[in-house]
Lab assay of single mutants.
Amino acid sequence: MSGIALSRLAQERKAWRKDHPFGFVAVPTKNPDGTMNLMNWECAIPGKKGTPWEGGLFKLRMLFKDDYPSSPPKCKFEPPLFHPNVYPSGTVCLSILEEDKDWRPAITIKQILLGIQELLNEPNIQDPAQAEAYTIYCQNRVEYEKRVRAQAKKFAPS
């Protein structure tokens, strides 16, 4: 494992614990031996107030490669969400998460999670990743928002 990646992720964890947006979660997972795995984080993004996503808490896994922060983490909703920019596998399609697009090593975990929260309610229809959600979003916004509200209710924190 890269010392650069681990040191950056340790800084990220410290900064997150000191200050993070209300309702968001970002925690490194534990290895079988109980030690912390900084390369694999369990996160959760709350649906934004005043949107059909409100009330939901959407679980996301963030996986970092050894060359982080040169390369972005892979962000994957578990379980996958109904959304035009979420692949059926759950992987998020967002330009700041793509090395050859808008990724920059200075982007923080907090910025990534806030960017994904923004994307939930403002899909990028130029870059669809899920045919069904994309089609319904474009053709029947009322039905799309109904499905999103049902999903938010399903993923409401207990």
Rank of each mutant, 00 (worst) to 15 (best):
M1L: 09
S2T: 11
I4R: 09
A5I: 15
A5F: 10
A5D: 05
L6Y: 14
L6I: 06
S7E: 09
R8W: 04
R8V: 13
L9C: 09
A10M: 14
Q11K: 11
E12S: 04
E12W: 05
K14S: 04
K14I: 09
A15S: 13
A15D: 15
A15R: 11
A15H: 11
W16N: 01
W16R: 01
R17F: 01
H20N: 00
H20D: 05
H20W: 01
F24T: 04
F24D: 12
F24Y: 12
V25H: 09
V25I: 15
V25W: 07
A26M: 02
P28Q: 04
P28G: 15
K30Y: 07
K30S: 11
N31W: 10
N31L: 14
G34I: 06
G34R: 09
T35A: 07
M36G: 04
M36I: 09
M36Q: 03
N37C: 15
N37R: 13
L38D: 01
L38A: 07
L38V: 09
M39H: 09
M39I: 07
M39W: 08
N40W: 05
W41C: 00
W41I: 04
W41Q: 05
E42Y: 12
C43N: 11
A44W: 08
A44R: 02
I45S: 06
P46H: 07
P46L: 07
P46Y: 07
P46T: 06
K48S: 03
K48V: 05
K49P: 05
G50F: 11
G50H: 11
T51M: 02
E54R: 06
G55C: 12
L57K: 09
L57G: 06
F58D: 06
F58A: 06
K59E: 11
R61G: 09
M62R: 00
M62W: 01
L63P: 01
L63M: 14
F64C: 08
K65F: 08
D66N: 10
D67Y: 06
D67T: 10
D67I: 05
Y68R: 07
Y68W: 06
Y68P: 03
P69N: 01
S70Y: 12
S70T: 12
S71R: 08
P72T: 05
P72K: 04
P73E: 02
P73D: 00
F77N: 00
E78K: 15
P79S: 14
P79F: 12
P80F: 12
P80W: 14
P80R: 11
L81H: 00
L81D: 01
F82Y: 05
F82V: 03
F82I: 04
H83F: 05
P84T: 10
V86Y: 05
Y87H: 05
Y87P: 00
Y87D: 01
P88L: 14
P88Q: 15
P88C: 02
S89L: 09
S89W: 09
S89T: 12
S89R: 05
S89C: 15
T91K: 05
V92Q: 00
V92M: 01
C93K: 02
C93Y: 02
L94E: 06
L94Q: 02
S95Q: 03
S95K: 04
I96G: 06
L97P: 10
E98I: 15
E99I: 03
E99W: 08
E99G: 14
D100R: 08
D100E: 08
K101W: 08
D102H: 14
W103I: 03
W103G: 03
W103T: 03
R104Y: 01
P105T: 06
P105G: 10
P105A: 14
A106I: 07
I107E: 11
K110T: 05
Q111Y: 15
Q111H: 14
Q111E: 12
L113I: 12
L114I: 12
G115D: 01
I116D: 07
E118R: 11
L119G: 02
L119K: 02
L120P: 02
L120A: 06
L120W: 06
L120S: 03
L120V: 06
L120C: 05
N121T: 12
P123K: 00
P123F: 01
P123W: 02
P123Q: 00
N124F: 08
N124G: 06
N124H: 09
N124C: 12
I125V: 11
I125A: 07
Q126V: 14
Q126I: 12
Q126T: 14
D127W: 01
D127P: 00
P128T: 08
P128I: 04
P128C: 08
A129D: 04
A131E: 09
A131W: 01
E132H: 09
Y134H: 05
Y134V: 08
I136G: 02
Y137I: 06
C138M: 11
Q139V: 03
Q139S: 07
N140G: 03
N140D: 14
R141P: 13
R141F: 12
V142E: 15
E143M: 12
Y144H: 03
Y144V: 01
Y144R: 02
E145R: 14
K146R: 12
R147I: 08
V148F: 00
R149K: 12
R149V: 09
R149E: 09
A150Y: 13
Q151I: 08
Q151D: 03
A152F: 07
A152M: 04
K154V: 14
F155G: 06
A156W: 09
P157I: 05
S158K: 08
S158W: 11
